[in-house]
Write a protein that binds this DNA or RNA. Structure first.
Lengths: 331, 331
DNA sequence: GTGAAAGCGCTAACAC
DNA sequence: GTGTTAGCGCTTTCAC
């Protein structure tokens, strides 16, 4: 070790002096000498070598399905800030919504010795995550979770969000409310749709053929869902979409057959992606604290890694807020 | 090495058999035996150890100012796909627009032994990048570059883009065109504004007080720029904004004083962020192939890393396209 | 409080 | 074509 020679001490001593948790074992004088030598030399410890020795890399991986989906950048940002403040490096993996590529990338991350994972791609049945859970790799789920809830999860109060939407529409006088549901292989899809059912029942509103599942969370899927809705002849005056993209796709599709929002129907989204307030009419939607979710997931992961033991919290749901804008109006 | 024992060979032999570029030095029979043993054991090479030995980590870092700015996710995605296809891992660093944090993070990445950098945060004068260039760290600039162009750069034909805007507006009959310029500490700000000047001269349009520099590429800065424009009393019927966010901020500000677009003035943006087509009126803007820029930057970096020598191309500008939508109309 | 010695998992140089 | 040896840079016993 370069610094050791410069300070005239043994490498082991230099290592101790430079390592906050072993600094106590070294005399203050020596610490000072070593630290000064390190500064003089602009010494930067080699994290690879340290990791090889300690099997701790101070790297955390964040796995997301598609960074160009505006849902994820705030999550990434929240996580990044917490991690880098804690001296951790963030490795970002975009799986492109492909489970195979996800498998490979996670394997590669593990080979790189990452200390833990934050996963935003969980499917309802997810064998890969079951494996990670089984072998104790520190892993935190964010936004979506699996059916087996053996991994800590940071999400939002989706149930509240959907209830807020239904109540808002019902208060506006809507009775024929339908739900464009998210895919049933995601926890958000399942939970939002069961919350919809519950909220409708609570307001004693009709549920018959009121839920249409969409194949994915995309505008195209929203458009397809709206097309099916039209084709079914099912009367409706309001739509609760499981997310903003579905709402956008539905609006575009319905506009194609002459239905204008909010003139002919009302609609709500979910997530409050950026620019949703800039649309005309602006989208009424549920604001989800995405950055805080990312940050909280990162904190949970750090807690797990730090404790060398088990995760602290097993489920955290952050509060949401209904943002009322132009796409909902009295019936 | 675990696999070596299982296959009954020396660790070094196993290493050779597993390493594509050294496989030729081993007999096919042995290769087969080792590969099978590796599969049986689910062997995953330890990248840290390999990196420590070879000082190649197969990790590339991408440094961006703010992932929540929609400009960057497509770049990230493009880069990620090329890198992961080449067996590289992407480390993402969000500097939060803070040069100090950027310094620290880059230092930390180097300690982690990353093989190279893709940098999207270049300022016109950027001492950090000068240092990276000086000590030969493989580094590729994307989107923005520095004044000293000693690092390879992948950008867009900004000059073309601005000229397209000016020509389009001039063809529509506008004569009093002003430019909301980007900050002069970015190459894009400088180049777009000099392109504006050139294009205006070409069309023999008046340049006097036609350029207003904005403090940053944000909606707030665009609004401030528009406010200054109003206050100046300078007549204008069209605005060429240096990017979409500036255009949005300006539109909002001008709407506040009763000026509607395109009724009272025309405006163009730059980048064609997602959702720009969904606004009302939809924004006329210059589409930049962001994902391809990211991908190309990644390829350039891989080329440099692979060649062990110098970078291949020093400057690549990708073609842009004017997307004409509702914010521009005849005068 | 500090030094000595060993080793994390891998691969490059050198033997044979 | 394969085994031997050494060492990447660090940390962690174990002595003293």
């Amino acid at each position: 070790m370069e610094v050791a020679r410069e300070a005239g001490v043994h490498p082991a001593t230099a290592s101790r002096a430079l390592n906050p948790s072993a600094r106590g074992e070294v005399s203050p004088r020596t610490v000072r000498r070593v630290v000064q030598a390190a500064e003089r030399l602009g010494y930067v410890p080699n994290t690879l070598a340290r990791g090889l020795r300690t099997s701790r890399s101070f790297v955390a991986a964040l796995v997301i399905p598609d960074i160009t989906n505006s849902l994820f950048p705030p999550i990434v940002r929240g996580a990044e800030q917490v991690l880098s403040a804690a001296g951790f490096t963030l490795v970002l993996t975009d799986t492109n919504n492909d489970p195979d590529s996800e498998r490979g990338q996670i394997a590669s991350m593990r080979a790189h010795g990452v200390d833990g994972f934050i996963i935003a791609t969980a499917r309802w049945q997810d064998s890969l995550l079951d494996e990670l859970a089984a072998d104790g790799t520190p892993t935190v789920l964010v936004n979506r979770r699996t059916a087996k809830s053996d991994l800590p999860f940071v999400g939002a109060e989706d149930q509240d969000g959907v209830r807020l939407c239904v109540d808002h529409l019902a208060d506006l006088g809507h009775r024929n409310i339908v739900h464009l549901a998210g895919p049933s292989d995601t926890s958000t899809g399942r939970e939002r749709s069961s919350a919809f059912r519950a909220a409708m029942r609570m307001r004693q509103l009709p549920l018959r053929s009121a839920i249409l599942e969409c194949a994915s969370y995309s505008e195209a899927a929203g458009a397809a869902g709206a097309a099916r809705l039209r084709a079914s002849g099912r009367p409706f005056s309001a739509i609760v979409a499981a997310n903003d993209l579905l709402a956008l796709g539905a609006m575009e599709q319905l506009a194609g057959s002459g239905l204008q929002c909010p003139r002919d129907y009302s609609i709500t989204g979910f997530n409050d992606l950026s620019f949703m307030s800039k649309l005309t009419p602006a989208l009424t939607t549920v604001r989800v604290p995405l950055a805080e979710m990312g940050a909280h997931a990162a904190r949970t992961l750090l807690g797990w890694i730090g404790s060398d033991g088990n995760p602290t919290s097993l489920r955290v749901l952050l509060p949401v807020e209904l943002i009322i804008r132009g796409t909902t109006s009295p019936h």
